[in-house]
Design a protein around this nucleic acid. Structure first.
Lengths: 150, 150
DNA sequence: CTTGACCCTGGAGTGGCTCCAGCGTTTTAA
DNA sequence: TTAAAACGCTGGAGCCACTCCAGGGTCAAG
């Protein structure tokens, strides 16, 4: 199987596959005479595993941990459970933060009902006030996880 | 006012201020004889405005638009309202996606109740299945906004 | 006159890709 | 047989919004 076929089989992208190889998420495959990467079925399964984890919004570092367990079938899986619990915690914390944000935004939106000149726009006036809302997370502890909506 | 004082006054960070200057969010300030940046009260207000927008999770491009209106008091503010409406849309879409994700994760977590060997761990088994969940957004249209929980 | 706090610039690093130029290889069709 | 299209290769830059650093300069207090 060549890289394009693998990409289709695992619903991925050739650039992403090469990137995963570079950072060690996927092993270096064999090469054909023409220097094309040559993949087998276990590559598909591994990549699918990775993509499924990414679709669950895990970081590549988290996925690296899970892959270790996948590669060590007799290891104790407690860490897997912990990793997932923590990840769930991050996601629900992010939901709470965004829900709060949405309320703030809707309240801000209510400040300007009609089209008018910018200097009278309730939204711009309100943002300009000194009501210092909590800034986005920027301390080192919080920085690892769950930032940004964009 | 020097850059450190401005940072405190606007609950920002000196590096961030220099970054905003570099990309044109803040104007280049006057300099002292010793080449220190020298700021006045309107710099504080502008920076506070920017930080408040960032705390509302707007992108710097969105903020650039809002700043234009702040600088043009007689302009029609309809675009401000639209920008905010769109932003609210992005945030609530992200909340919906994360809520769905949380459900998936909790269901996955239920697959492994007890500590056991990795090869029997319901979580790893489940992730390895071919139940291809929708991958994270990667088309060009969706890419502009609201991606990533980390 | 030294110490320490503050400031300067330019550049690199973060995550997880994505896109590109400028090539080489393989497949398809005429 | 040959031309074109499709696919692959590498190395590097770019995205966002910062953050951190090295290696220096400036300034106020003691």
């Amino acid at each position: 199987m060549r890289i394009g076929e693998l990409a289709k089989a695992a619903e991925s992208d050739v650039d992403t596959i090469r990137y995963y190889e570079k950072i060690g998420i996927l092993p270096k495959p064999a090469r054909t005479d023409g220097n094309y990467r040559h993949y087998g079925e276990q590559h598909t399964e591994r990549l699918r595993f990775v993509r499924r984890c990414r679709s669950l919004d895990m970081t590549l570092d988290e996925i690296r941990v899970l892959l270790q367990f996948r590669d060590a079938p007799d290891a104790d899986c407690a860490e897997v459970n912990n990793l997932l619990d923590e990840h769930i915690g991050h996601v629900s914390a992010r939901i709470a933060a965004l829900t709060h944000l949405e309320k703030e935004l809707r309240s801000l939106r209510r400040q300007c009902r009609s089209v008018q000149r910018a200097k009278d726009c309730g939204i711009l006036v309100e943002i300009g006030k000194n009501t210092s809302a909590s800034a986005p997370a920027k301390n080192k502890a919080a920085k690892r996880h769950i930032t940004g909506t964009h």
